[in-house]
Simulated assay, not measured.
Amino acid sequence: MKRLIITTLAATLLAGTALSGTAMAAGQRYDDHGRYDQRHDNRHDNRHDSRYDRRDHRDDRRDHRRWERGQRLDARYRDNRYYVSDYRARGLRAPPRGYRWQRVDDSYVLAAVATGLIASVIIANH
């Protein structure tokens, strides 16, 4: 009798696990980086909607901020396209080792290459 109850209980548990595993696997999808994304729903996939592209560009324009010594320069502004190689022609002093001048918004920012820590900020003359 015990054997019958244990066998029935084990079969019920295995059947329940198999059904719930199938249901869960049906809801799981991989995102762009190969991770599971269970919340993904095709009805709300806005990655290719042009309204969202325009909104992103508007946010960049509003992100004008005042840089100060001691802050960290955002990683996006530490890119080579903001790098100022002709600092002497612009009236800037030579950067110390490990630092470089970046032109961000309307300012020249002297920041550490490795950490982005700002050592000096000079307003750019147009």
Results as ranks from 00 to 15, higher is better:
M1D: 00
M1E: 01
I5C: 06
I5K: 14
T7D: 12
L9M: 06
L9H: 03
L9G: 05
A10T: 11
L14D: 06
L14Q: 02
A15H: 07
A15K: 00
G16Q: 00
T17E: 04
A18I: 07
L19C: 11
T22K: 14
A23L: 13
A23D: 12
A23Q: 09
A23M: 07
M24P: 00
A26R: 00
Q28G: 10
Q28N: 15
R29M: 06
D31N: 05
H33C: 08
G34K: 04
G34A: 05
D37T: 03
Q38V: 07
R39E: 10
H44G: 08
H44N: 09
N46K: 13
R47Q: 10
H48E: 05
H48M: 03
D49W: 04
Y52W: 06
Y52P: 01
D53W: 01
H57Q: 14
R58V: 13
R58P: 00
R61A: 13
R62L: 10
R65K: 15
W67G: 14
R69K: 13
D74Y: 03
A75E: 10
Y77V: 02
Y77M: 03
Y82N: 07
V84M: 02
V84H: 04
D86T: 07
R88S: 07
A89N: 02
A89E: 04
R90K: 13
G91M: 11
L92E: 08
R93N: 14
P95C: 13
P95I: 14
R97L: 11
Y99H: 11
W101S: 09
W101Y: 13
Q102K: 09
D105E: 14
D105I: 11
D106N: 10
S107D: 12
V109K: 05
L110T: 04
A111V: 02
V113F: 01
G116K: 04
L117E: 15
L117S: 03
I118L: 11
I118R: 03
A119L: 08
A119Y: 01
I122E: 12
A124N: 01
A124T: 03
A124R: 07
N125V: 09
H126G: 13
